[in-house]
Design a protein around this nucleic acid. Structure first.
Lengths: 339, 339
DNA sequence: ATGGCCGTGGTTAGCGTTACCACGAACCGG
DNA sequence: CCGGTTCGTGGTAACGCTAACCACGGCCAT
């Protein structure tokens, strides 16, 4: 909280009004509903605005009108480029509609998310977009009480808070697992991010297991691994899985850039991919297409999740849409040379 | 701009006051300066806050106090992970100090930046952090008039608006060019991002040329190329440079992931790096360390730029620091196997 | 002509908070 | 034991804007 040096240049609406020879109310109208003001007055007001360098005070405006044009967004991490695509999609839509974006990271912690959401509600955001679907009880209560519309993004949750725009992590993992089986791989391993604080990881693991069950294959704990995020981590996962007694013939890296790290490690070890082991990834980062070999992966509508989330939120705010809604945007398998 | 559904759950300060049996003013104090209120009253107020589910309205608070706890940040792109590190640094500091982050992308356009800044000033942000140093005249006027503190980040500008936290793109490019010369490379090529709307690219080119001049080497236009961002683009740059009559023996990719794209292309073509051609990059993205061979690059203090920028801004807001200041955080060469 | 109605602009009363000042009660040294 | 601090609290007036009325003049239809 700190000083707002308005004083010297801070022209207020009444200064504009004086300069234009009208009342403050007319200035307000000329700015927000130009059609309700005569053309001459409108021109005088516009000239006066430029003359005095007026910058409207939305704090005052929002307080008075009880509306806000700020949307709060919480992502698990600001550094992960996967979320960046979604953020970009959100921002694109908000900009066009004249909304502002307030952003915070939850660090994958529901408590940190709660703090961020509380701060957003204090700023009286018009709506929230949350990239995690796991919330504390206090968070849910707070949001309900505030009556603010919410879009959740990370996966398709069992009990949506309000609106949802996502793809299904479970279905995506299941589809890729089946795909690998169809290609003839018999021992498919799964590497996920730590599932403890990450519902998406759990969903992917569930999808993987479901596919195995459908295929009538046994679960083999030696073929499942949790690894932290990062290229190095992917290389290590590869090493660990391959040095076992019955190594996998295919590895599905269900997260982040793990798969890329593994492919690069295969290069170093001189292992043929998919000759020695096939590798599949979860997210279509462009690096995967450029690796040697290019990596089979899923195309997830990251950017569209952003645009549709923002649009859905704004529709609700504009009263164009009413109830909760769940939008599953699906996914697509991109078969490349690595499998 | 849309409806703020305060009504049902929207407890105001006076509701808390009533529940606690004190005046609204006392509630305000209990919340902001607990030490100035007796322990019993403080406890009653805290209980009342929980009881009625009170969420302070910072719009009203800021309007009244003429302070704000929101910082506006403009980055060129929300998708580029290079900026993500800086954003993260900023966010980390702001969170700890109880500030909020409003973010927008300029798309590398000064006009879009102007629009974003105007919107931020309308929201009465306490300060601005700008990742570009190229601004329209109107932008400069607006910021000056608003009297809001600003930190610029992208490079060390000729005429700082206010405060600056950065490394010098020119010095960094110069250092890497000298480094390559020292390693014995005779024909060093430079690939930059399009310099038209990107002051950083120009700075890097200037640094490169300065180094050549110091080394007494001629400029060779066939050894300079501008390419858009991306891995594919790096591969193409490599191809173009190498198919010339007198190809370079080293290429300095001064931006983004171009270098990575080039190394991957070399793998595909079976070209030894650095046997056939040496490759150096500009930014220390972790991919570069994992490629085969690992790529020589610069370590730039991206995260620290964020933390220091935020801290400098908050120091100014707290009156702990006064004048403009330029902080050059330097860089470091990481020599790896690719050169 | 005259009543009503639109199109325009002004007036008033907040929005929910904080700054500022006032006030009474304890407290304290001379 | 009394004038002056200090401490804790409350009242009031903004902060800059907008919602909701209200006023006024001109215009048409009857």
């Amino acid at each position: 909280m700190h000083d707002l040096p308005d004083p010297p240049g801070g022209a207020r609406m009444r200064d504009v009004a004086r300069a234009a020879g009208v009342s403050a109310m007319t200035v307000s109208r000329a700015l927000r509903e130009p059609s309700r003001v005569s053309p001459e007055v409108r021109a005088r007001v516009e000239a006066a605005v430029r003359e005095v360098g007026y910058v409207p005070n939305r704090l005052a405006g929002s307080l008075s009108s009880r509306r806000s044009d700020v949307v709060g967004l919480v992502v698990p991490s600001l550094e992960n480029s996967l979320f960046a695509a979604t953020v970009k999609g959100i921002s694109d839509v908000l900009r066009r509609e004249g909304f502002q974006l307030m952003i915070a990271d939850s660090l994958y912690s529901p408590e940190a998310e709660e703090a961020a959401i509380r701060a957003f509600l204090e700023q009286r955001v018009a709506g929230l977009i949350l990239h995690d679907t796991l919330h504390t009880e206090a968070t849910v209560r707070m949001i309900r009480r505030a009556g603010v519309p919410v879009v959740e993004n990370g996966t398709v949750p069992a009990e949506p808070l309000d609106m949802v725009v996502s793809y299904s992590n479970r279905e995506a993992a299941k589809a890729m697992t089946r795909h690998l089986a169809r290609l003839g791989y018999r021992r498919v391993a799964l590497v996920t991010l730590p599932s403890a604080a990450n519902a998406r990881s759990r969903d992917r693991r569930d999808g993987f297991l479901e596919a195995l069950a459908e295929l009538g294959r046994p679960q083999d704990p030696r073929l499942m691994l949790e690894m932290p995020s990062g290229l190095v981590s992917g290389a290590e996962a590869l090493a660990r899985l391959m040095e076992g007694a019955e190594p996998p013939d295919a590895i599905f890296f269900a997260g982040d850039v793990l798969a890329a790290g593994a492919v690069l490690e295969c290069q170093r070890r001189g292992w043929a991919v998919p000759g020695k082991v096939a590798i599949a990834a979860f997210d279509n980062v462009d690096l995967l297409a450029q690796l040697n070999p290019p990596v089979t992966t899923l195309r997830l509508p990251r950017h569209e999740i952003g645009t549709r989330s923002a649009r859905m939120l704004l529709d609700r705010l504009a009263g164009r849409q009413s109830g909760p809604a769940v939008l599953d945007l699906g996914f697509e398998i991109i078969q490349r040379a690595s499998t």
